[in-house]
Amino acid sequence: MMAAMQGEGAAEPDIEAIARDPRYIALVRRRSRFTWGLSAVMLVGYFGFILAVAFAKPLLARPIAAGGVTSWGIAIGFGVILLAIVLTGIYVRRANRDFDLVAADLARDFAA
């Protein structure tokens, strides 16, 4: 079992065939573009927030409604939390409906 787990030794012919399959190549490209895009959104959202905390305090302190107390900072902070949840949701949806189907296709065609 351990041997099958590890990358040492010769690759199985199936694996090499999958690596050359156009559907696999397209899957890897699309998924990688999608996940790096989502990661970039999260990184920009979070470190943007941290930079705003460091450099734009008056902006974050400003109340949303005139005469109210709830600040833009609270709305933005909650927004970053929601962003994290929504981005994971978007990824799961796309992976379940799209990427998994391609992977299942490949698994069927290259069934051992």
Binding site: T35, W36, L38, S39, M42, L43, G45, Y46, V80, A84, L87, T88, Y91, V92
Partner: peptide
């Protein structure tokens, strides 16, 4: 915010 990164 580490969680989305773990997922992606």
């Amino acid at each position: 915010v580490g969680w989305p990164i773990i997922l992606f």
